[in-house]
Nucleic acid binder design. Structure first.
Length: 473
RNA sequence: GCCCCUGUAGUGUAGUGGCCUAUCAUCCUGGCUUGUCGAGCCAGGGACACGGAUUCGAAUUCCGUCGGGGGCGCCA
């Protein structure tokens, strides 16, 4: 005997239950008269004296347990009738058809529903009252209160759906990269020095030595490629000690990172758009139930429903020089060599609201390890690079590029940026013994989820976000 | 780091110097109810972030502290 799990597959029964709630709900017709043991959270407890209705919830759905004082031990009955919302309860009983609810004259009869007529059971864990976050309350709880009580927030249907979707998205991304020959790897998160210039590192003590939390797997995935793994990817955390406080930044975030040998920037942009296309296609094909749950909540809050529109390929490419012109013609103040800031992105997004690549940034704006072709110059004669971003609307999802594989050029790039090559040997040493041309990118998983779920804040789609003001829970 | 906004029961809110012994919903506690399903009915409970100032009088005005939100920079 197996039971039907949340994913629709057969699960082995466990010590605490013979069936899932969704299974009894869906297949109750064939189960009438059979004894089942189920368990779940008590979402509501409606008492009527000598009878009691317990609405149980597990990962698969809802099922009503019907308790009658005459049918069971009286102390057990009283305990369950007096239990608080969100307590976990196990019941054993006989599957039966529910009595149909009263319907107004002329209304159609609703389809048959099933319940468990309880004969025995126990409270597994009683919930304290009151709940800091009402799981089914019709109030709009603030994000900070929710994050302080994420374990309860997660019991809410739409929140739970978002994180199920997140897990699926990671799986679809992995699946796609594996079909393209990428090998999953893991890089160290404790490092002795910067693996990528620019951002602030979190210092830590590694025994008697100073060390840092890794800000990026950049160097390590390159070394793996140099070593002949050819195509690698990693899904892992990056840590950045920056004092930003916006809807799209965290100090710890998960990135989807790839690196591939014998590839240039255009090659890995193609990998990325195929991967995103695959993720969106799979979500559209498999996860409409989760999207529906999210939309049910959104509609209750007066928010517009989200739809999964699979983006068409290829994504538009808007080279930096063209992007500057779009910003200028939209009234933005910008010159060649300036960074494209958020308010500039708004102007570009007006023309390209979906996914779009911004390739060929000025070399002067990119790190020393980005590849450049000396024949590629910008409209004012500045050196262009093979670095790119991927934006969705105004938001940056990815940055990536072809990497410089020639040792001498790496050293020259450092000198051009007034950096001392002697201080970057941790990076450049890997390139002394020959290196294939290669390229890669890092994609913010939470930012991708924001697009997919319509979340207005990256914290919505990160279980336990870490920002400047939050290290707990 | 800079700029702007904000802090009222467990949660979400009303409140603009006296009508506040502070509104409403949800919630919580107790009681009634042998078919509820947004259960119902009855009774009860719970808050002005903290410290100072102005004033006859402060939830309301001002200052400080500590929280929270938004924007910018930078980034994924």
């Amino acid at each position: 005997m197996s039971m039907t799990g949340r994913d629709g597959r057969d699960w082995e029964p466990t010590h605490y239950r013979t069936h899932t709630l969704g299974e009894v709900r869906d297949q109750g017709a064939q189960m009438i008269g059979h004894e089942v043991t189920v368990a779940g959270y008590a979402e509501t407890v409606r008492g009527r004296g000598a009878i009691c209705f317990l609405m149980l919830r597990d990962g698969t759905g809802y099922l009503q347990a019907f308790l009658k004082k005459d049918n069971m031990d009286e102390d057990t009955f009283d305990a369950m009738q007096g239990s608080s919302r969100e307590s976990t309860i196990q019941v054993t009983g006989i599957v039966a058809q529910k009595r149909p609810p009263k319907v107004a004259e002329g209304e159609p009869e609703p389809p048959a529903e099933y319940e468990v007529n309880v004969t025995s059971g126990q409270i597994l864990a009683l919930a304290e009252t009151p709940l800091p976050v009402g799981v089914s309350d019709d109030v709009n709880v603030g994000l900070d209160v929710r994050l302080d009580n994420r374990h309860l927030d997660l019991r809410r249907a739409h929140v739970n759906a978002m994180f199920q979707l997140r897990g699926n998205v990671l799986q679809y991304g992995r699946d796609h990269l594996i079909t393209e020959g990428f090998n999953e790897m893991n890089s160290p998160k404790i490092i002795a020095s910067a693996s990528e210039g620019g951002t602030n590192l979190f210092p830590m003590k590694y025994f008697e030595t100073d060390a840092y939390l890794s800000q990026s797997p950049q160097l390590y995935k390159q070394l793996a490629v140099l070593g002949g793994l050819e195509r690698v990817f990693e899904v892992g955390p990056a840590f950045r000690a920056e004092n930003h406080d916006t809807y799209r930044h965290l100090n710890e975030f998960i990135s989807f990172d790839i690196e591939g040998a014998w590839m240039n920037d255009e090659d890995v942009m193609c990998v990325q758009e195929r991967m995103i296309h695959h993720i969106w296609s799979q979500v559209a094909a498999n996860d409409q139930n989760l999207i529906d749950i999210i939309n049910e909540y959104r509609e209750s809050q007066g928010d517009e429903a989200i739809t999964v529109e699979v983006p068409s390929l290829p994504f538009p490419r808007i080279p930096y020089c063209d992007a500057i012109e779009i910003v200028k013609s939209g009234g933005g103040k910008i010159e060649w060599g300036d960074d494209i800031e958020s308010h500039h992105c708004d102007l570009i997004a007006a023309k390209y609201p979906g996914f779009h690549f911004l390739p060929r940034w000025p070399m002067s704006m990119k790190p020393f390890y980005i590849f450049h072709d000396e024949t590629e110059k910008g409209s004012t004669g500045g050196q262009l690079s093979r670095g790119f971003d991927l934006n969705y609307g105004r938001d940056e999802m990815t940055s990536g590029g072809q990497r410089e594989h020639r040792f001498e050029v790496l050293e020259q790039n450092l000198r051009n940026m007034d950096l001392n090559p002697a201080e970057f040997t941790f990076y450049t040493d890997g390139f002394r013994y020959g290196a294939p041309p290669h390229a890669g990118w890092g994609l913010g998983v939470a930012r991708l989820l924001m697009v997919l779920t319509g979340a207005g804040n990256v914290r919505e789609v990160v279980l336990f976000p870490r920002d400047r003001n939050r290290v707990t829970p």
